[in-house]
Computed example of a mutant assay.
Amino acid sequence: MTDTLDTLPTPCLILDRAVLRRNVRRMTDRLKPAGVQLRPHLKTAKSVEVGRLATAAFDGRITVSTLAEARYFAAGGFKDILYGVGIVPSKLAAVTQLRRGGTNLRVVTDNMPVARAIAEAAKAGDSFSVFIEIDSGGGRAGLPYPGLPDLIDIARILHGAANVELAGVMTHAGHSYHENTPDGIAKVAEQERLAVVTAAQALRDAGIPCPIVSAGSTPTAMHARHFDGITEMRPGVFVFNDLDQAGIGSCGSGDIALSVMASVIGHYPHRNQLLIDAGALALSKDISAQEFMPKAGYGFIKDAPVADLAVVACSQEHGFVQADAPLPYDKLPIGSKVRVWPNHACITAAAYDRYYVIDSEQSDGRAVVATYDRINGW
């Protein structure tokens, strides 16, 4: 018997394939005409099936955030993988193992001690492909722009080492998540572009090749005015979207492909609340969407019978659901199921080992048409 939304256990993760495909087409239509490759950051989906859909119109390059993801996607046939978290010497052996197996696993650094360690490790005959990370304003990792201290020195260590390829430069404008107008995001996108393109030109001026110029977040990929000088973009959450992206303006609510399905387990009219069996572990405690959607709580209820019905508080396995208006308990009986849009799809999905896939463009959209696995851990 085919599962439907009515027969699934709760809490569980629901993925609407029709919305996912629309999201991928939208990003493809942004980047293809500009001649920019898509290297999607698959830390969001952590799924080979989603990765194949996301890269279908491009050359198959991807980004990951853990070595577990790198192994999983390599086993799934992906051969050009950027491990987008700064590498440390103790992980170089794991990188080497994947590269020996035929995967071009590329790594990232922003400091000379690691550059030297990579050069030293390569003396044994193993090869490495390295990006230098640039901080374009997000304040997380990378050489700060505009100063770009040590850029040329790091590049010379890498470029001058046997068996080491300096693949290029990369950046991520994480501060784009704190803008919610097209002009505001476009300004950050231009800052991101200038930082990484300037770094690439500085290397070339010093006689050092810089073939790949890599940038990208979902907001900047969607709102950049142009991509001059950039060769690839690395958005991630665009495949699913979430309330945070809707608040920013990178998508609409109809573009959110991911939801958590939960069961109503209690009615509490004296406090105008109901309980669901999805709490902090099922939804996460990420409240990023509240920056521009103060009533989002830990997630809005999809297709709710009253406005702004949201999970307003969580304990480990309980979600407290409330709205400003009186709750229509007759429309939300005990045992009924609701779907919660996540604040941050990447964090919410991390609690689960699979996606139950539906397709809202097929029949009534309630049949489970596939199950996609995913990789967790490090």
Rank of each mutant, 00 (worst) to 15 (best):
T231K: 07
P211W: 02
D16N: 13
V306Y: 00
Y72N: 00
D308I: 04
H178S: 14
G249T: 08
G236T: 07
F238M: 09
T10R: 03
S253P: 14
P211I: 02
A367D: 13
L5E: 06
N163S: 05
F58N: 11
Q316F: 12
G160F: 04
D255N: 13
Y72I: 11
Y355V: 01
L283G: 02
A189N: 04
F78D: 05
G319Q: 05
F240M: 12
A323R: 01
S259A: 15
F292G: 09
I132Y: 10
V164L: 02
F238I: 03
S127W: 13
M293E: 04
I265P: 02
A117S: 15
A70G: 14
T44W: 11
D110F: 13
A74W: 11
A70S: 15
V169E: 09
V312K: 14
H270R: 15
A34R: 12
G319T: 06
R61A: 15
A310R: 12
K187P: 04
V306H: 00
T348I: 04
A34P: 01
M222T: 04
V321W: 02
T66G: 07
A45K: 00
I301H: 02
Y177E: 07
R39S: 10
H344P: 01
D80F: 00
H344G: 07
A119I: 03
Q37P: 11
E165R: 13
G139S: 11
T66L: 07
A296S: 15
F73P: 03
W341T: 04
L283W: 09
L258Q: 03
E49V: 01
I230W: 04
D150G: 10
L53V: 14
D364N: 13
M233T: 07
V369I: 15
S284A: 12
L158Y: 05
Y83M: 14
F240G: 01
D3S: 14
C210A: 13
R366K: 14
I185S: 00
D255H: 09
